[in-house]
Design a protein around this nucleic acid. Structure first.
Lengths: 343, 343
DNA sequence: TTGTAGGCGTTATCAC
DNA sequence: GTGATAACGCCTACAA
């Protein structure tokens, strides 16, 4: 099962040169005569020579590959971000290695170790819902591995970050529900350890406050697993429905929570928006064919991916240590559909 | 930006041993004394020694990583397959590198080259809709790279393959529509160059024939880009609607085609299933919250992924050249929901 | 302008 | 039982 791709050594032998001459010629060094260069390049092209990236990695300590850790690729938001990352990576000749934490802290840790062991030149990370401690990233980062966080970020590591304007997105979603005349607006969200959870929760609360309403803890439900476990969401929803003053609207804070909640409401034969209106934070490309079509806070995922990769490449290719970091905040868009319209 | 993880050399120096002794001790060779082994292992554990996989790859010519090429990860079928692949890979300590062709032949070729250049030990491939020629894989395969094809496979390369029973899935979907009383059943599918297209088309036709109906070319629409380009699907649908005898049902052959068709029908204000019923080949986890909920041929994607990876590892780790190959065919499941019920 | 030598981290071979 | 040496493919001082 062995490949025998042509190597520098083969070229050297064929042309009666030394490997170093060939190596230099291939890289266009000006200490090599034009004639030799031409010969080498012609031979290389003809025999389809490709430098062995493994050997290059070993030698240079850089692999021209970057690792991505997200909770789940099976999610339009993340797959769109990845598409953005990939489009830039492709231009700059980086490979990306995608891994999933599936919201598990343990898998996040092992993935990060695997990737660093594979000498990725940098990492792009959105934290898992279970993660309370980011030492695994802090350690890598301290050793010099460039990391860019996005979406679910941490304050504990000072590096570039790219997020959506979660506060404003949540604020607008909630205000929209208020404008539609809903008053008892519940919020189903993920683990409080996630930055997005806090930011969206703040936006939700602020909108209520600005409308003269008091946020009510009973209307706020946390799902530690971010909707990955349907039973957890069912439990949250059931509790909301059993409240003395049942909510007349729900604002869900993530893709999976939104679809799961809608699915559960339908199973429970609760009319949406008739009995309960719904707005979700989601990039689902199918939101318009949901029943009812789902009003959604949409993030500019593709653009986020591009900016993330731009920033990471900046870190990787910077000659001198980078000391000043930015947190880019991209605006969301509220797509109003049927699920939030007042009956 | 350099890591300085501990190496065998460091251990050797610290313990006053030679690198080769340390190397052997770490691998538990029996030509090393128990005492030395203990010392080395203790030191390694204490200093968190991890062998450098890049160096191992270079030395061994194997990288313990495998490349995956699919058209799109933003698709429940493929992301579920990938989860299956990953679960086995994780157990067997393989890394997977996921790439997307986005239905482009050119990207498929470059991805395959990138992956082979990165010395993946094997590849898992589902062909792009544009692909007419599989020389890029045949060449790698001839040079000894193990490849397993799934879903969209080719007859031109003799290796393991894993597919769903597309014929039967399509047959059952069509028969279901017939049983519901529909008679003018259209079929929207992808490029004829894809194996799944042909298999599903055959199943569709056979079901019609078995019901005493003559398949009609006008009712069969091909979308070369597999639904990635909405305009193409719109065109196909429009043509169907302009037929003298407009179809009363549509069977769509892929995930993206199904959601796009449903979305377009809704835009066109055509009642589903009232005016036109719909059955789709899809693994979308949201099919039950579509409007209407979508009757679907579902593939055992997770299990497919596991079997694919099992087969690939078999190929990779086989001591002697494998000469007999299998094509595993897994059964689909028809999930009947609202979109196909006779009004 | 070209070549030699050494090293990246690991492992296999062979000698001690 | 242990160690020296060479090799995987590439790169880069430094020497010629």
């Amino acid at each position: 099962m062995n490949f025998h791709p042509i190597t520098i050594k083969d070229i050297a032998k064929a042309l009666g040169l030394s490997v170093s001459t060939v190596s230099k010629a291939l890289r266009g060094s000006h200490e090599i005569s034009q004639e030799t260069k031409n010969n080498v390049l012609a031979y290389a092209r003809e025999h389809n020579y490709k430098p062995n990236p493994i050997a290059q990695s070993l030698k240079r300590g850089r692999s021209k590959s970057i690792g991505v850790i997200v909770c789940n690729i099976d999610n339009n938001f993340f797959s769109q971000v990845i598409n953005g990352i990939e489009s830039v990576a492709r231009q700059k000749d980086y490979n990306i290695i995608i891994t999933q934490s599936r919201e598990s802290y343990e898998r996040e840790v092992t993935n990060s170790l695997h990737l660093s062991a594979r000498s990725v030149d940098g990492m792009i990370v959105s934290l898992s819902a279970e993660t309370r401690n980011v030492d695994h990233f802090a350690n890598l980062y301290k050793k010099g591995l460039p990391i860019v966080f996005f979406d679910r970020v941490t304050d504990e590591i000072d590096t570039h970050k790219v997020i959506a304007n979660n506060f404003k997105g949540a604020y607008e979603a909630t205000r929209h529900l208020l404008e539609q005349g809903f008053r008892r607006i519940a919020h189903i969200t993920s683990s409080l350890s996630l930055s997005i959870t806090l930011e969206r929760l703040q936006g939700y609360k602020q909108a209520l406050t600005d409308a003269g309403l008091e946020p009510d803890q009973h209307y706020i439900k946390l799902c530690q697993h971010g909707g990955m476990i349907q039973e957890e969401t069912r439990q949250a929803l059931t509790e909301l429905l059993q409240l003395e003053h049942r909510p007349d609207a729900i604002f869900t804070a993530s893709d999976r929570l939104s679809t799961t909640t809608l699915s559960l409401l339908r199973q429970m034969k609760i009319a949406v928006p008739g009995e309960i209106a719904l707005v979700g934070f989601t990039n689902s490309i199918s939101a318009d064919i949901f029943n009812p079509s789902l009003t959604a806070v949409v993030q500019p995922a593709l653009e986020m991916g591009q900016q993330i990769m731009d920033l990471l490449i900046q870190l990787i290719e910077s000659k001198r240590p980078v000391t000043s970091f930015e947190k880019r905040v991209l605006e969301t868009e509220l797509k109003i559909r049927d699920s939030s319209l007042h009956p």
